Simulated assay, not measured.
Amino acid sequence: MSARWRSAACLSLLALLAVVTTLAWQRFTAKPIAQAQRQWHEQQWLTVLPPGSYDNQPLQTALALADTSLRHSRLLAGYRATLAGSPTAILLHNRFQGYGGAIEMVIAINTQGRLVGMRVLEQQESPGLGDQLADPARQWLDQFIGRAQKNTPEQAWAIKRDQGAFDQLAGATVTSRAVIAAIQDALRYFDDHRPALLGEARP
């Protein structure tokens, strides 16, 4: 065998070993990576629930949702948090149009129909606006905590410049209006579908 063929054979063998090693490494690390991604996903979602308010794994089983096309948004999924077997909150995952593109949120509503937490999961707004909206430390969404359809008049579901009750994101009138409308959509949906969401039997 000539030196050229020996070199080619060695290179082919090395390439084969590299491919086998890469595939083996991917297979070995796939499960830990998937588990880490799942844990990160759960952490993002479950921060909207008050600590100690649930002892199940809410995201393990999605609820069957009906009538998911709402006035200003679309529901993508729903989940039930429970404590000692009793419902404590419903998580609603919705999507709606912001100024720069689609926005996805998870909204937590307790059994009395009050908002207990919200978080932006995905958004396509400009970097400055996106930071204001998605970063929990900015606390803009905190002004909605405790609100419900029953304790907030219809006309209050608007920014203050529209004679409503809520502050807007700085320089983001369109996005602020869209978020408020989507939050109200979620509250309406909860009120309209409460028995099914909480697993209660209808009278």
Rank of each mutant, 00 (worst) to 15 (best):
L11H: 00
S12L: 14
S12F: 10
S12N: 06
L13Y: 05
L13R: 03
L13V: 04
L13A: 10
L14P: 03
L14A: 13
L14K: 05
L14G: 11
L14C: 13
A15P: 02
L16R: 06
L16I: 03
L17Q: 01
L17K: 02
A18R: 14
V19M: 07
V19N: 09
V19D: 04
V20A: 14
T21G: 00
T21L: 10
T21C: 03
T22C: 07
T22G: 04
T22L: 11
T22W: 01
L23K: 11
L23S: 08
A24K: 12
W25L: 12
W25P: 00
R27Q: 13
R27I: 02
F28A: 11
T29C: 08
K31Q: 15
K31M: 12
P32N: 05
P32R: 10
P32T: 05
P32L: 05
P32C: 06
I33D: 08
I33N: 06
A34T: 03
Q35D: 13
Q35T: 06
Q35A: 13
Q35G: 02
Q35C: 03
Q35F: 00
Q35W: 02
Q37M: 14
Q37Y: 01
Q37D: 14
R38L: 13
Q39V: 08
Q39E: 13
Q39P: 00
W40Q: 15
W40I: 02
H41T: 07
Q44S: 03
W45N: 06
W45Q: 12
W45V: 06
W45K: 02
L46R: 04
L46H: 05
T47I: 06
T47A: 14
T47W: 07
T47Y: 02
T47V: 12
V48N: 11
L49C: 07
P50A: 11
P51W: 10
P51E: 15
G52H: 04
G52Y: 09
S53E: 09
S53A: 11
S53G: 04
S53L: 06
S53W: 08
Y54R: 03
Y54T: 04
Y54A: 08
Y54H: 12
D55T: 04
N56E: 06
Q57C: 11
Q57V: 10
Q57I: 05
P58G: 08
P58H: 09
L59G: 15
Q60H: 15
Q60K: 15
Q60F: 04
